[in-house]
Computed example of a mutant assay.
Amino acid sequence: MSKTEGGYWKRFVRRLTSDVAELDADDLSDRSQAGGAQRASDCRCGQEAVVLGRVRSVELCPKTSAPTLEAELYDGTEGVTLVWLGRRRIAGIEPGRIVKARGRIAVRDGRKVLYNPYYELQNTA
């Protein structure tokens, strides 16, 4: 058996024995790296980062006089919260959408955050 055949069978068996969430996380992680983005788990506070993943949730937070729109982006390794200050809604930012975001990583309540990130909506295919 050649080296590539062993790799094929290993991947095949893994796909048969893994749960759907684990396979989805692997696919997201692969897509993120193929899209030229960093893995969210590798990003550090203060670092300029590009992340690519699926929006899990979107929430309007009217905590102060200025509203904030928050979206949780998951890339298969870890989540990053995208926060747009002063926004109530952004067309295309919705659960299930693939988004590539760029900005400086901050940490809020122990979670990674990008404030007012530059973003690109990606094709879901």
Rank of each mutant, 00 (worst) to 15 (best):
A66G: 00
V113P: 01
R56Q: 14
Y115G: 00
L23T: 05
L114E: 05
V55C: 11
A125G: 14
Y115A: 12
R15A: 10
C43M: 10
W84S: 10
I90W: 07
G96K: 10
A66T: 13
R104E: 14
L16Y: 08
E48I: 06
L16G: 14
G36T: 05
T4R: 11
C61P: 01
P62V: 11
W84C: 05
R102T: 13
V51H: 05
G79H: 06
T17C: 04
L60Y: 11
W84P: 09
K100C: 11
L69D: 09
P62H: 04
G96A: 09
L52W: 04
P67K: 09
E48M: 14
C45Y: 02
D26Y: 03
P62Y: 06
W84D: 11
I90F: 02
L16K: 15
D109F: 12
R14W: 10
I105W: 01
Y118P: 00
A125Y: 12
L82F: 07
L52R: 11
D27N: 04
F12W: 15
D27F: 08
G92Q: 03
D30R: 12
T124V: 08
Q47W: 04
E5A: 11
C43K: 03
G86H: 03
Q38N: 07
A37S: 13
G92C: 02
E22H: 08
K63D: 14
C45W: 00
V50S: 12
I93C: 02
Q47S: 06
Q38A: 15
E78M: 05
K3V: 05
A37C: 08
L69R: 07
A37E: 06
R54Y: 00
L85T: 09
C45V: 09
A37V: 09
E22W: 10
Y8W: 09
V51Q: 03
S2Q: 14
A49I: 06
R97G: 07
K3N: 13
S65P: 08
G53N: 04
G7D: 06
R104A: 00
L85F: 11
K63P: 00
R44F: 00
V107Q: 10
E120N: 06
L23N: 05
R102S: 12
E5L: 15
S32C: 07
Y118L: 12
G96N: 07
V51P: 03
T81C: 07
